[in-house]
Amino acid sequence: MNSHRRQAIERGAAGAPLCAVADVRYAPPRRRSVARRKATDLVIKGFSWIGASFGIAVMGFIVWEVVVRGAGALDWAFFTQPTPQDVTSSAGGFANAIVGTIVITGVAALIAIPMGFLGGVYLAEFGRNGRIATGVRMIANVVMGVPSIIVGVFAFAIIVKPLQHYSGFAGSVALAFIMLPVMARTTEDILNLVPNELRESGLAMGAPRWKVTLGVICKAARGGLITGASLAIVRVAGETAPLLFTVLSSPYWMTGLFGPGGFFGGPVANLTKTIYDFSGSPYPQWQELAWGGALVIIIAVLGMNILVRLLFQRGKQW
């Protein structure tokens, strides 16, 4: 704040004011007619409205475009058949890819949600404003901004390279890495909303810290915690870049856990990479399947977002 002041004073030398309020008061008088000022005001307001409508229109346009192009592909076969092996076979769907994405994202969630949750508990309950916790918080914020492709490179280097083969698991680790800071920071924010009296009364009852945290505080905040976890899952479910060279993709069903077709053993079919490959193919029927896949992702991601927001708005006592 001090440096703010100083800057303001330095600016003040050029005739500008010391603080925002004074700004209006001491602004050098410029003779502008009221009509002109009102016109400027109106123009700017117009721009704001146009800008906001434009932003929303773009969003609507993208969703609309995907719906129009993808709706035709969503039939029974899409959800029951595996991806077509070659162009000549007309039958084919994305079933194996959908299953693969659910498994990969699910395993990522199993890794990241408990860890992220406990990390958030540390930040909110134990670390608080200590030096270490502040550092961890800062790092979590920074990790959230690391491009997902780099996380993919990381997972490649620590899993794919030593094991000498691609695997669904490598993709799960990459996605878990992306989820971890999101989950931790959301948990922290939500736990911080729980009133301190609740903590104190729990402790005053003689309950140990961990029981107060899990049984009282987290219970009180469970709506928010579930929201946070779901949004973290949804956030990574649509990721493509971290899967490009960890999971790759496959035209087959995943065959159990190990072995070349299994989760730990080899490439696994997944929605986003398959969409990427198919939309870049020259065959119209494959492109249509890709749009179908895009529509499935949009429905899942936006649907989940809206659902969770509705639930959260309702349970937003804390």
Binding site: M115, G116, F117, L118, G119, V121, Y122, L123, E125, F126, G127, I132, A133, G135, V136, I139, A140, V142, V143, V146, I150, V151, V153, F154, A157, I158, F177, L180, P181, A184, P208, R209, W210, K211, T213
Partner: peptide, 29 residues
Amino acid sequence: RLGDPIFRVLATACGLALAVAMFGLAGVL
């Protein structure tokens, strides 16, 4: 009395894991 330290250590470990992950990422790169 055992539950508390365990919980605390577990939570702290997960918090620190975030920092470790970040530095691990940088190191691996």
